[in-house]
Design a protein around this nucleic acid. Sequence first.
DNA 1: ACGGTCGTTATTGCATACAATGGGCCGCGT
DNA 2: ACGCGGCCCATTGTATGCAATAACGACCGT
Lengths: 257, 257
Amino acid sequence: MTVYSTQFIEWGHWMAQTAIDHGTLPDRTYEGIRDLIIRGRIRPGDRVREAEMAIRFGISRTPVREALARLVQDGYLIPISGGRRTELAVTELTVDSVRELWGLMGALEGYAIQSVAELPAERREALVADLRSLNAELRSEAERRPRNRDRLFDLQTAFHVRFVKESPGARLRSVYDSVRPHVQRYEWLYGTRSDALYEPSTSEHLRIIAAIKRGNPVEAREAIETHWRNASQRTVHVIEEIPTARPRRASQKSARR
Amino acid sequence: MTVYSTQFIEWGHWMAQTAIDHGTLPDRTYEGIRDLIIRGRIRPGDRVREAEMAIRFGISRTPVREALARLVQDGYLIPISGGRRTELAVTELTVDSVRELWGLMGALEGYAIQSVAELPAERREALVADLRSLNAELRSEAERRPRNRDRLFDLQTAFHVRFVKESPGARLRSVYDSVRPHVQRYEWLYGTRSDALYEPSTSEHLRIIAAIKRGNPVEAREAIETHWRNASQRTVHVIEEIPTARPRRASQKSARR
DNA sequence: ACGGTCGTTATTGCATACAATGGGCCGCGT
DNA sequence: ACGCGGCCCATTGTATGCAATAACGACCGT
């Protein structure tokens, strides 16, 4: 059995953060590659090669193939040059995609929040407390200089995940979990602008929290949908100015010998 | 290269219908197995074995593995006995799942139909004509005796797909396409009841069509969400009475020699 | 008769071998 | 110099081998 000399290169840095040793090899590889894409370590348009990833993660091509198949299904990778030999590349980031995704998130969270707003008062109480504290952290982190980009990124996500997790319905959450990482690709990019605004967002969060507190499903839904509609404009605006967000062609050549 | 004697057993019957020779082997296998599950040829709780599927489709285990990984991700299969050796079984059908799925479909189609209702009048005109004709076919097929279960099944799906396809947004459609087959598992079951009602459904369709024709997004959304809410109750009611819908334990033993 | 323990074997997990294919590069011809 | 054709190699597609393991059944003890 040939063991690659450079084992688990890619895992090392975030295994520490998230204590990943559970999950199967293909699962971990799936998440590992997805993380590379979300955080822009592999850029839109870049080719993704089985063998290269296998070496990078210190495993064979078989589990990598499985991971890649799932990433294609999810829309992170796209087959290019569509013969039988389907080569894969990271999908581009586009402003159209932002509009689609943000609208979809509004629909999904809007649906989720209705049932959350109908929960018994005491559960909403605890939820509201958590949301308030997350939002406060988000606000203060946004004001700090220099900003901690990772923390902003995580808090942003945490706020929304917090109440969706509260909604009953495993299916909704699973769909949600499959869409959200796409959004995160853009949020990561958004965070690269040091002057990116978080203020309108945190204010809108307050309105959402208030609606949940009052137990008003209609208002909560309206608030969250409005939030995503507004956020869509803000995001499009910022993304449009970031050069790396635009389609690039011709991934870097692999190192030829 | 060992070639199994019984080649492409499972593909034969529906290759004819859908002219499947496009798509890669893992893709076709994914769809093939999914179809077996949707149409109940593999039943909830049944074990799904790599080697068995490989023989059934006349291929090796490698493309099957890929297909199975995707089916797990989609929630058609679930790992049982969660050690490293994850054996797979078809997920159960439950009434809770119906409520979740129907609610989710309401949210997704509700979101989709808003943008459809805002399309220019002429495109809506063509769409409305198609929807009317599909609905009429559905209605007349439901009255025929004996019923053509496959045709009812297909028409039911076609009506909804028709307008979702019209909505802009590849992402929405891809999420939609991943959720809809789950719904179809239950619709298939619904169709097994020869006395299953289609009347309330087709009437509600008329209201939806009218809202699109009038170009009223709010009303269209309201109509489709109500439709799914009502359909949820009807479906739960019927599903509850079907014995095969209830969880069964202990899949059939594999044939031991 | 029943429960526990051990061995067998079916089945999965991963790696690797081999075939097929398509793109790129080089060289040739004009 | 430039286009064209053919060869080579990078890369994917599929099959298969081998190791690990958990399920299942048989056997034994009480």
